[in-house]
Design a protein around this nucleic acid. Structure first.
Length: 729
DNA sequence: AATGAGCATA
């Protein structure tokens, strides 16, 4: 524990502020209460004799174990004697501790004695022991917490004058309360101490400030100086953080400026906290500017500062810049920690670039930076996201082997991964393991399972699970209901879904943009565009903010239904309204143009999206490659394929097929085979069509031998076996 | 004194 410093408030002011003013010191005596006198019960003659004997025995036989020295007195010793003995041995602090422990072990201790020993510990500057003595009071359950607290505190005050008179004791007491989350009680202690003319140390007040609710902390920060607390830089940092948490980042920035004007020199933490605030609200420009300012002040951004910036860049899909910032940080001589690595890993996983994420993961391993459960959860979720449950399972196992216990987040992530991969059985088996491991599934876990069942079309089981949730006392939330709404929609029961929305709304859970977007999507896909627009109207009427996805659903609807003009109109409308389209928005249009055979138009859309700095995703590439392959424009298709791989997007079996077919049509057999080999290396099985291409060429003798797949090629062989089996059935 | 992870929509 840090050493606390307590000032006698009034004398502090007298010394430094109102040096020679007697008036203030006389007004002090008016308002300040003196500490009470200590008047213990007097021992009887017989007790005095016993106490004397005990004290002498343990003092003289200091070298022996206390238990042995006290053996002769064991029977006669009563709780009342404890304090009288302590009075006799108080100058020998270590003896006091031993004796108190002895009395405690035979349950002959009192709260008053605990207070006395605490005072002696503080007086001996043994703050750690003082801290654990006070803590021990709350670690052993008492009848009523509140009563005991008052009792404890009153006794501490009562014994103060005679047993130590070291004001640090109240800092210790206060800190324990704060650490135990008893903030109201801590506050009471603070105020009581004021009435005795003592003000607790800044360090203790900072601890309290950091644990208090954000809004309260801001108020405390304003009020405490009035009673004599002199805040320091750390206090400012805590409050800056609170103000950021309240979403008032510019105010926090203002506080940063203000503190400097008041003579407190902001440090790296002050700047980093405001920077982190701006990062949370996506104000990248202000972030760069502030980093510049802090550099000018001679402060070097550290891994926290960079971590915040990197997180923002990841969240805004600027992964290349995130990596750039990371390299810059290393170039700056800052050693990255596991948090920064985890941020990057998670960022790249969410951006669909599992390769880059893995690269960072192994990079951190090679640097001996130990991944923790958050890191593992991030990388596992990355593999889950791309549907690679084999790798996800491996990492899950590896993490357990490293002695890291998966928590409910990790388990839920894996369960969700299996659900999304359609492996519901596996998901439930992990669910069972989770329970066996003593980890309780929560609403998120159940929602993942329900969503998985819904996507399987097993709405009955989903419903059963919903009832199980109720049974074990878990309240389904909006996520849970939205999953079921989606399930109903996908199974064609849009009306049922709408009924359910009405039901949970009546139960006090209001539908959100997700709910409405799901319903819109259902109508779009069933070709009922006017109904979809009605849902949109209702959603807007309720003041719900549509998201890009809402418009993407609409865009997808237009494109699916061949309403190209409406789609283009929607895009322009979005641009005019300042709603930033993303890759999915453009993908719908790209796809429609490709389907119509208008690759030129598709390429124009692609160019447009790039010009607007919307990064293409895997789907963009897939659609464009398919379009170009269909148009036999293999140069362009190959270029896009290279770009796609370079950016780390995984290439699907479909895209490989498109390329192979395209090359075949162009009679580029070497290229076709290269792609096929690459596909094999990735462990992706070719479909029948591709196989036919290769076998046809072979049969017809059109291809050169080296372009033909080896007849013992395992994939084809496997395929043949499969086909034969299928045909046999 | 300040950073990182899970569930719903295209």
């Amino acid at each position: 524990m840090k050493k606390g410093t307590t000032f006698a408030l009034r004398s502090f002011i007298q010394l430094f502020s109102f040096n020679a003013r007697k008036l203030s010191s006389s007004s002090i005596t008016d308002t300040t209460r003196p500490f009470p006198d200590y008047s213990p019960k007097k021992p009887s003659l017989r007790d005095t004799e016993l106490v004397h004997q005990i004290a002498n025995a343990i003092k003289l036989r200091r070298a022996e174990p206390l238990r042995r020295s006290l053996k002769p007195y064991e029977c006669k010793f009563k709780t009342d004697h404890l304090i009288w003995v302590l009075m006799k041995i108080r100058s020998d602090y270590n003896l006091v501790l031993d004796f108190f422990e002895w009395a405690r072990s035979r349950r002959d201790s009192t709260l008053e004695a605990l207070c006395i020993v605490t005072h002696l510990a503080v007086a001996s500057k043994d703050l750690n022991v003082a801290y654990s003595l006070v803590s021990s009071f709350w670690e052993r359950p008492k009848l009523s917490v509140n009563d005991s607290f008052v009792q404890f505190f009153d006794l501490l005050v009562y014994t103060y004058k005679d047993w130590g008179s070291d004001p640090n004791v109240f800092d210790v007491f206060f800190r324990v309360l704060v650490e135990f989350g008893m903030l109201r009680e801590a506050r009471k202690v603070f105020e009581k101490m004021l009435s005795y003319g003592l003000v607790l140390s800044v360090d203790s007040c900072n601890l309290y400030l950091s644990k208090e609710k954000t809004a309260t902390a801001v108020i405390v920060f304003k009020e405490f100086p009035e009673v004599g607390v002199c805040w320091n830089v750390a206090s400012y940092n805590i409050v800056i953080h609170c103000v950021c948490q309240l979403g008032r980042v510019s105010e926090a920035h203002h506080l940063l400026v203000l503190m400097e004007l008041k003579g407190y020199i902001p440090d790296v933490v002050s700047y980093s906290t405001v920077i982190n605030g701006y990062c949370r609200f996506g104000e990248l420009e202000k972030v760069w500017k502030l980093i510049e300012v802090m550099r000018e002040k001679g402060l070097k951004p550290n891994s926290y500062t960079y971590g915040s910036v990197i997180l923002l860049l990841c969240r805004s899909c600027k992964l290349a810049e995130a990596e750039e910032a990371f390299r810059e940080m290393i170039g700056d001589g800052i050693v990255p920690d596991n948090v920064v690595y985890t941020t990057l890993i998670d960022g790249f996983c969410k951006g669909g670039n599992i390769k880059a994420a893995s690269k960072f993961f192994y990079e951190m391993l090679s640097l001996d930076i130990a991944p923790d459960i958050v890191t593992y959860t991030a990388i596992i979720s990355g593999f889950c996201r791309v549907g690679d449950m084999v790798e996800a399972g491996k990492l899950f196992h590896e993490m357990i082997c490293r002695g890291l216990e998966p928590d409910s987040v990790t388990f839920t992530e894996v369960i969700n991964g299996y659900c999304k991969a359609g492996e519901i059985k596996e998901a439930f088996s992990v669910h069972n393991r989770m329970i066996q491991a003593g980890c309780s599934p929560n609403v998120v876990t159940y929602t993942a399972l329900i969503d998985g069942l819904c996507k399987e079309g097993d709405l009955d089981s989903a419903n059963d699970l919903l009832h199980e949730m109720w049974k074990i006392g878990l309240q389904p939330n909006l996520f849970t209901y939205n999953s079921i709404v989606n399930g109903l929609c996908k199974s064609g029961s849009i009306e049922e879904a709408i009924k359910l929305v009405g039901e949970f709304e009546a139960a006090g859970i209001n539908p959100d943009a997700f709910t409405y977007t799901t319903l819109m999507d259902a109508y779009c896909k069933s070709g009922e565009m006017s109904k979809a627009q009605e849902v949109l109207k209702e959603m807007l009427g309720r003041g719900l903010e549509p998201t890009v996805v809402t418009f993407n659903v609409l865009m997808n609807g237009f494109c699916l239904n061949g309403m190209l003009e409406d789609g283009e109109k929607l895009l322009n409308w979005m641009l005019a309204k300042g709603i930033a389209p993303n890759a999915t928005t453009y993908n719908s249009l790209v796809k429609l143009y490709c389907v119509r055979g208008d690759v030129k138009a598709a390429a124009a859309v692609y160019k447009d999206m790039c010009a607007r700095e919307v990064g293409p995703d895997g789907k963009t590439y897939e659609n464009l490659i398919r379009g170009h392959c269909k148009a036999r424009n293999m140069k362009e298709a190959w270029f896009l394929y290279r770009g796609m791989v370079e950016k780390g997007f995984s290439v699907s079996a479909g895209t490989y097929s498109d390329l192979i077919k395209g090359f075949f049509k162009r009679k580029k057999f070497v290229e076709a085979r290269d792609v096929f080999e690459q596909m094999k290396r990735e462990g992706i099985a070719a479909d029948k069509e591709i196989f036919d291409f290769f076998s046809d060429t072979k049969l017809k003798g059109r291809g050169r031998t080296d372009t033909v797949v080896d007849p013992v090629d395992e994939i084809i062989e496997n395929y043949l076996v499969d086909e034969e089996l299928r045909e046999a059935n």
